[in-house]
Computed example of a mutant assay.
Amino acid sequence: MKPRIRLTSGALFSCALLSCSPAIADINVGVVLSLTGPAASLGVPAKNAIDLLPRELGGEAIHYTVLDDASDTTQASRAFRRLVDEHKVDVILGTSVTPATLALVPIAHEKQVPLLSLAASAKIVEPMDPQRRWVFKVIQNENLMVAATVAHMKAQGIKTLGYIGFADAYGDSWLAETRRQAELAGIKLVAAERYVKTDTSVTAQTLKLLGARPDAILVAASGTPGALPQKSLRERGYPGGIYQTYGIANREFLRIAGKDAEGAVFAVGPVVVASQLDAANPIRAIATDLTQRYEAAYGKDSMSVFAANAWDASIVLQQALKAARDSAKPGTPEFRSALRDALEATRDVVTSQGISTISASDHVGYDARAAVMVQIKNGAWRYVQ
Results as ranks from 00 to 15, higher is better:
Ala264Arg: 07
Lys208Trp: 07
Gly299Met: 03
Thr178Tyr: 00
Gln181Ala: 03
Thr206Asn: 01
Ala308Met: 09
Thr288Cys: 00
Arg236His: 13
Arg194Trp: 14
Ala227Met: 02
Arg179Trp: 07
Val305Ser: 15
Leu277Met: 11
Ala192Pro: 03
Glu193Val: 10
Ala285Trp: 06
Ala267Arg: 07
Lys188Arg: 12
Ala212Gly: 14
Thr224Tyr: 04
Gly211Pro: 04
Arg213Gln: 15
Gly211Glu: 15
Arg234Lys: 15
Val265Leu: 13
Gln205Cys: 06
Ile217Cys: 01
Arg293Leu: 08
Ala192His: 02
Tyr243Phe: 14
Gly263Glu: 14
Ala261Trp: 03
Ala264Lys: 08
Met303Asn: 12
Glu295Arg: 07
Ala191Lys: 13
Tyr170Pro: 05
Ala308Glu: 10
Leu209Gln: 02
Ala279Gly: 10
Thr200Leu: 09
Ile256Pro: 01
Ala261Gln: 07
Met303Cys: 10
Ala249Pro: 02
Ser201Phe: 05
Gly247Leu: 04
Phe266Asp: 01
Pro214Asp: 02
Ser304Met: 04
Ser222Asn: 14
Ile283Leu: 12
Ala169Glu: 14
Leu277Cys: 14
Gly299Glu: 13
Ser314Cys: 10
Ala308His: 06
Lys188Asp: 12
Arg284Ser: 10
Thr291Trp: 02
Ala227Lys: 01
Ala257Ser: 12
Asp301Ile: 05
Arg255Thr: 12
Ile217His: 13
Arg236Gln: 15
Val271His: 07
Ala221Glu: 01
Thr245Glu: 05
Val265Pro: 01
Arg179Met: 09
Arg194Ile: 05
Ala310Asp: 06
Pro229Met: 11
Asn250Trp: 01
Ala313Thr: 13
Gln181Ile: 11
Thr224Ala: 12
Gln205Phe: 03
Gln230Val: 13
Ala191Phe: 06
Trp174Glu: 05
Arg194Ala: 07
Pro225Asn: 13
Ser232Gly: 10
Val190Asp: 01
Ala267Thr: 10
Gln205Asp: 02
Val305His: 09
Leu254Trp: 01
Ala310Asn: 08
Ala267Ser: 14
Arg284Glu: 11
Ala261Thr: 05
Leu254Cys: 09
Ala169Gly: 05
Asp278Pro: 01
Leu254His: 03
Tyr298Ile: 13
Ile242Cys: 13
Val202Met: 00
Met303Arg: 09
Leu189Trp: 11
Thr206Ile: 08
Ser304Gln: 03
Gly226Ser: 07
Ala313Leu: 12
Gln205Trp: 05
Ala257Leu: 04
Arg236Ile: 07
Glu262Trp: 08
